[in-house]
Amino acid sequence: MTDRRLRNTWITWIIAIALLALLPIILGGSYILHLLIISCIWIILAQGLNIILGYTGLLSLGQGGMFGIGAYVSALLAVKLGWSFWITMPLATTATALLGFIIGYPVLRTRGIYFAMVTLGLGVILSEIFNNWIGVTRGPMGIGDIPYPTPINLGFTSIAFDSKITYYYLVLAALILVMVVTYRIAKTTLGRALIAIKEDEVLAGTFGIFPPKFKIIAFTVCSAFSGLAGCLYAHYITFISPESFGVMASIDALVIVVVGSAGMVLGPALGTIILILVPEALRFASEYRMLVYAVILGVVIMYMPQGLGCSIGRLASKIVSGRRVANAYIGTSGSNQNLRGANGS
């Protein structure tokens, strides 16, 4: 039974990855490829927020700033020092994680609405630093000519990353890594401890879970994901300026997580698909895009406060349990396991 389940899980993973790898070939087109790359980056960024909001129950509004740190660190190292992407990427990710770890300690003393405000403040401060530390960041003019990742030499052939297709496989690899890490966190003691803290901090403490420790871990992981997303963004667009990393970026990430279902591994992916791909597919003029976002967010929070992923999951389990009843299976179905929303606390 468990063996079969295990094999099924593996098969699901493999099919999913194969599909994602084949997507550019199925859909084709440079514009589609662009959307796919951007989507992957957004999913990574939103997954960071999902860890802290969905699993730990803390609303961080500083996601945009952390996204910026990853982008600027990597871009500056590459442009000013000429370092290779393969060095700047881990460095930028680590630097962002480290920043999260360091500021996490004082910041995580606050909770609820105060935590939201402090992180909002952090986002604003970071964005002003990007704007005003002109000697380093060049302020509003931004940093251009950020190099593509250096080609990997495999001896017989070398893989360059100056085309969209190879860059897509790069971000896809990063995305899979992030998804696997999140999946493992959700499945194990760490995730269970985070959810316990979201549910009831005092009760968690009673059972030996020290909330500050886990909150810092969650905030550090969240920062690392954001930093990675920022770095991938910088080397894809090859130009960065402060306006990409302001409060609006934090809000975009929030919208993605909430719409997709906070606290679900696949939530950010679903959210990104809906919020990036749907408006594009419907060919909304870009000035209506934000309006569409606002309406989607409002409707979801009002009628499905747990997010779309949760609603779909519930529907699926209803269908499954319905079939079970048809098979004269007596007993209750384990309905909404793992399908809790951000707002359960």
Partner: peptide
């Protein structure tokens, strides 16, 4: 509802009004 939910609902309205005004 919890503060976080209210906050998100507020953000939705905020985005709506801001972008409507801009249009």
């Amino acid at each position: 509802a919890p503060h976080v939910t209210l906050l998100i609902s507020a953000i939705a309205m905020m985005l709506f009004l801001e972008n409507l005004a801009s249009l």
